[in-house]
Design a protein around this nucleic acid. Sequence first.
DNA 1: TTTAGGG
DNA 2: CCCTAAA
Length: 334
Amino acid sequence: MAPYITQGEDELNLGALDGILDEIDEVEDLDFANGLSDIDLAEEVSALGRGPCGGLHFGDSISDSHSPDHSGSSNGAVGTSETSTVTTTPDMKCKDETCRRRGRCACSFDLGKVDELEKDVGCLVPEPSDEDEKGAAEGSRIAVNAREKRQRKPPQRYIEESSKANSRDGHKQASAVGKDKPPLWRQPKKKRTGLVEPELEDDSSASESENIILGKKSTKSVDRRKHQRMWTVGEVTKLVDGICEFGVGHWTDIKRLSFAATAYRTPIDLRDKWRNLLRASYAQKPEKGEAEQKEKSAGRPLPKSLLRRVRELAALHPYPRKTKTRSSFFARNS
DNA sequence: TTTAGGG
DNA sequence: CCCTAAA
């Protein structure tokens, strides 16, 4: 094969690699979905099965099965049928928001639009995206290459950051350069790991690859984005699902359930992603022009269903919890 | 400790 | 994504 990447690379390859890296992640995800890793596939299926916040869920307790706290009531009990659902829910831990949120579940468009949903689903599972196909083809080859490279790649981490940090702020970042503290951005302390944390997805592939991009010749434009893990549709789906289930706040709960298997992606990340999603959704909502939408979608095409759900949730609550609508609670009580 | 907001 | 302030 062609010696794609060798040791003595220059900025030339860096540029190409940059674009490639992006695809690598996708490829990885795809591979998993193809059957290499059941977990990812399961996630996709689960998310899809539920569709819009528990619209069609079958009894698949694939990944959500382990919900000790909520006693699996969130397993689609919401959208199952607008009738009982919570009959056997012994408000063991239902404080107020959680219970209420679950009951309401802003997604009301699902049932009426099953047809559309089905279409979206169909295009989502089998072939995530037309782009991916291309990426998969040359991505697989690259993946191997990249893997080899990252293996022998020295632990060269934030050399530049140290000097920069020193010059800039010199907060506590400077300490974590290359000494004892490994560059683990967010070491999963396994502290509150009540449930098993397989960490199977924690292949340091993406993280390491990122390093390559941050070559020293990157000048000084890489301050905070040490590593950027790309959010795939599956992740976003899960995120939206979790938000729909537990509510907009409660990132911890969402992380514990929907993202229990995902080592990275701390609650804060979830929140950030949600914010970005809101931005995207809001930017796209008023615009009916297809041209602009197309451009936006070009980067990271989100399934229509996903966007719809985001819009729904966004419409329900701006970003942070609104007024909590506590008035309604009181009104009902009195 | 978690959430919210800003960079 | 990272950091900081407030609950």
